[in-house]
C-alpha cells in the first residue's frame, strides 16, 4: 500500500493480530512453560502462568531415564543423512531439467510430483517386507533411505524452480569462457544457487525431522528418532506433564528455529513452485 494507514487503524490491527498470533502460539508457549515446572505445578488448578519455581529438573530426568540424546542423535542422522543423500541426486537432476530441458522435462517433473502423492499406507507392507529382507528394519540407514525417497521429489522441484531463475546466458557465458561441465557447476551454478540450495536443505531437514509415518512404523528401540520417542509418552504412568513438555520442547526447538529461517521458502517448496 502506497498510502500510510491512520495510526488508529494500525493500533487496532496490531492489537488484534497479536491476540490471534498469541492464541495460535499458545499451545507451544504453554508446553515450553510447563517444561520448567514441577509435576505438581504442571497440573495445578487454577493453572500457574509465570510465577513458579523454575526448574531444569525435567530436562535432566528425561535425559537420564530415557537416554534422550540417543533419540536426538537418531533424528539428526536421519534428517541430515536423508537430505544430504537426496541433494546428491537432486542437484544434477534439477540442473539437467532447468538448463537442458527436453520435450519430456515437464512430464518427468509432474511424474516425480505424483510419486510424492502415493499414500504411504498403500505401500506399507511391501516396504516392511523389503526392510526385513535386507535387514533394514529399525536401522538408521533404512530410515534415511526411505525419507530420502519421500522427499526427493520436493527437493528436485524446489531446486528446479530456483535454477530456473538463473539466466541460461550466464551458463553459456561460462561455457564460452572455457568452463567444462564440472567447472560450470562448481564455479558458476553452485555459488549462484546457494540461497536456493540452502532453503531446499532447510525445508527437507524440517520435513524429515517431523516425518511420523515411516519413523513410527519402521523403527523400534534402536533407530527410533524423536517422533517415535515422543509417541512412547502416549501411554503415561503417573504424573508426567512436565517431563512430556521438556521432551517435546527439546524435540521441537531446533526445528522451530530452522523453520523461522525458512518461512519464505516454505511456500515455494510445499506448493511445488506454484505459489512464490
Amino acid at each position: 500500500m502506497a498510502r500510510a494507514a491512520t495510526t488508529q487503524r494500525k493500533i487496532i490491527n496490531t492489537a488484534f493480530a497479536w491476540m490471534v498470533g498469541l492464541l495460535i502460539f499458545f499451545p507451544i508457549m504453554w508446553t515450553i512453560l510447563t517444561s520448567f515446572k514441577t509435576e505438581a505445578t504442571a497440573i495445578a488448578d487454577p493453572p500457574v502462568w509465570f510465577f513458579f519455581d523454575w526448574t531444569l529438573d525435567n530436562y535432566r530426568v528425561v535425559q537420564e531415564r530415557s537416554d534422550y540424546s540417543r533419540f536426538l542423535w537418531n533424528s539428526i542422522i536421519i534428517a541430515g543423512g536423508s537430505t544430504f543423500l537426496g541433494m546428491l541426486i537432486a542437484i544434477p537432476a534439477a540442473w539437467s531439467m532447468a538448463f537442458v530441458p527436453s520435450k519430456r522435462t515437464k512430464d518427468i517433473l509432474l511424474w516425480m510430483l505424483s510419486t510424492k502423492m502415493l499414500p504411504a499406507v498403500g505401500v506399507l507392507y511391501p516396504i516392511y517386507l523389503i526392510f526385513i529382507k535386507f535387514g533394514l528394519l529399525d536401522t538408521r540407514i533404512g530410515l534415511t533411505i526411505v525419507l530420502m525417497f519421500i522427499n526427493l521429489p520436493i527437493m528436485v522441484w524446489m531446486l528446479y524452480t530456483y535454477f530456473k531463475e538463473i539466466p541460461g546466458e550466464i551458463l553459456e557465458a561460462a561455457r564460452m569462457d572455457g568452463a567444462g561441465l564440472r567447472e560450470e557447476i562448481l564455479y558458476v551454478l553452485t555459488p549462484m544457487a546457494i540461497p536456493g540450495i540452502a532453503s531446499t536443505v532447510l525445508l527437507n531437514v524440517i520435513l524429515a525431522w517431523n516425518e511420523a509415518f515411516w519413523t513410527l512404523n519402521l523403527t523400534a528401540a534402536k533407530a527410533a528418532p524423536l517422533t517415535a520417542f515422543i509417541a512412547s509418552y502416549s501411554s503415561p504412568e503417573g504424573l508426567f506433564y512436565a517431563k512430556l513438555s521438556a521432551a517435546s520442547t527439546m524435540a521441537i526447538a531446533p526445528i522451530l528455529i530452522l523453520g523461522w529461517f525458512s518461512q519464505k521458502q516454505l511456500v515455494r517448496g510445499l506448493t511445488f513452485g506454484a505459489v512464490k
Partner: peptide
C-alpha cells in the same frame, strides 16, 4: 564452444 577460441558478449551481459 570453449575450444573455438571465440569470445562472446551477451545481451544480458551474463556477468557472474
Amino acid at each position: 564452444p570453449a575450444k573455438r577460441g571465440l569470445a562472446m558478449v551477451f545481451q544480458s551481459y551474463a556477468l557472474y
